[in-house]
Design a protein around this nucleic acid. Sequence first.
DNA 1: TCAATGTTTCAATGATCGTTGAATTATGAA
DNA 2: TTCATAATTCAACGATCATTGAAACATTGA
Lengths: 121, 121
Amino acid sequence: MNERQALASFSALSQATRLGIVRTLVVAGPEGLAAGSIAERMGVSPSNLSFHLKELDHAGLISQRRESRSIFYTASYGALAELIKFLVEDCCSGHPVIRASVEQSDGCCAPQEVLGDATFA
Amino acid sequence: MNERQALASFSALSQATRLGIVRTLVVAGPEGLAAGSIAERMGVSPSNLSFHLKELDHAGLISQRRESRSIFYTASYGALAELIKFLVEDCCSGHPVIRASVEQSDGCCAPQEVLGDATFA
DNA sequence: TCAATGTTTCAATGATCGTTGAATTATGAA
DNA sequence: TTCATAATTCAACGATCATTGAAACATTGA
């Protein structure tokens, strides 16, 4: 992830509705959610949702596929992981204190069981 | 870190000059840098720098202290660490794939020597 | 006190962002 | 074809953001 992508990602995540969308899609898993379903959960109009989805897509944080009349959106796990890596390594220069604080938080080197299917991308 | 703080932090980091300031201050260490010195490195005017510093301060990502005529700014390591934790745990729901991707990246469970003095806050 | 230095504040401007509702496109069913 | 559904695009608007230069403030030394 280069700086340009990181800036776009931070910008995308700096708005409440969009942060909510990402959180919802991460939980939704690889199947994702239809736009209408997301709009309903977020409590925003379809056109407003479209606007925010486009921002997230532009930042590479989500991807989409059409399925009949619906368009399903999924979180881009890889992009989220890269953003976190950017924050730790590039932005924070892999600073020991910061790095430690992330790793100490449970799960390090003793990965939890991966849920049901592990086809997360 | 709550959502409000996270949003403010993402907003603060979504601008090139401000991201540059944070990176510079992280490298600068606990002594920090005087505003004038930061402005020079970033290639921006004093008043423009003040504007960006205020944004970063408002997000809690930096702190300041006066020393004679100069005001020294330092990165808030704790806030940066909390932001990363928020991204991993709250935003990404501690998703195994994302978590693994951060941890695999060298340094996990084999912490590097901490530099000179370890008084980072 | 006065002047010099380091920095912030303020007002003004143009640019970008977020929201709204109407119009449009794409798909599937009758 | 016609209609209904799902979603996007577009134009308009107000709000917020980034930049600039002038003015103000705080600190220090002469």
